[in-house]
């Protein structure tokens, strides 16, 4: 009877561990859709000071998308192993350049990539190959990928900050976002 009791306690404990999300992360709720709040999952902060400064994240080891210092944050879910992502890399770089030139107070746009299933080495290979100037975060164990609904790559999710400081997803789509300039103006609401 006593052994049985301990088995029940162990089983319930394990079940609890499995069901309760880690602190600071969201449960797997599928791909964030327009109108959703982006999951407050923690990502490892880039090592390079310039990239940390770009994101506006502090000295901590991790940050969340909702902490990025920008009115609009574009999150690219990509993989070094994804031929579509490879093909789109120059277009995404062009978008970054455009957003750096055209961002203005109240309409700042920043971008970061999450390399799903990619080790740090693989993310660096992608960065060097395509000379990616914006932060790329390695998600080697697919943790972020699973939390974001295991979409196909590339997938772009855009989070916009409202006047009251709250942030919502305003764009969520797999595949190319098309012309970088048109996409930029669409995101900041110029057109």
């Amino acid at each position: 009877m006593r052994r049985c009791f301990f088995t029940v306690v162990l089983a319930v404990g394990l079940l609890g561990c499995a069901l309760v999300p880690s602190p600071g992360t969201a449960q797997d709720g599928g791909v964030p859709q327009v109108g959703d709040v982006f999951p407050d999952l923690m990502l490892p902060a880039p090592q390079a000071p310039a990239l940390r400064e770009y994101l506006g994240v502090g000295p901590g080891a991790s940050f969340s998308v909702n902490q990025v210092d920008a009115d609009v944050v574009v999150v690219e879910i990509f993989s070094m192993y994804c031929p579509y992502c490879q093909r789109e890399a120059p277009v995404v770089n062009e978008f970054y350049g455009l957003s750096q030139r055209k961002s203005k107070p109240g309409k700042t746009v920043k971008i970061l990539g999450i390399g799903v299933g990619n080790s740090q080495f693989e993310v660096e290979v992608f960065r060097k190959k395509y000379q990616v100037p914006f932060p790329l975060i390695a998600d080697g164990d697919y943790r972020v990928y699973q939390l974001l609904g295991q979409t196909r790559t590339p997938h772009f999710i855009v989070v916009k900050r409202s006047a009251d400081g709250s942030r919502r997803v305003i764009y969520s789509q797999a595949g190319s976002f098309g012309d970088p300039e048109a996409f930029f103006h669409k995101l900041v609401g110029d057109r």
């Binding site: 994804c82 579509y84 595949g175």
Partner: peptide, 14 residues
């Protein structure tokens, strides 16, 4: 629930 889930990212290309 605790077992590692198999995962691979599929490109939009496919």
């Amino acid at each position: 629930l605790l077992a590692p889930r198999p995962a691979s990212a599929v490109s939009e290309m496919f």
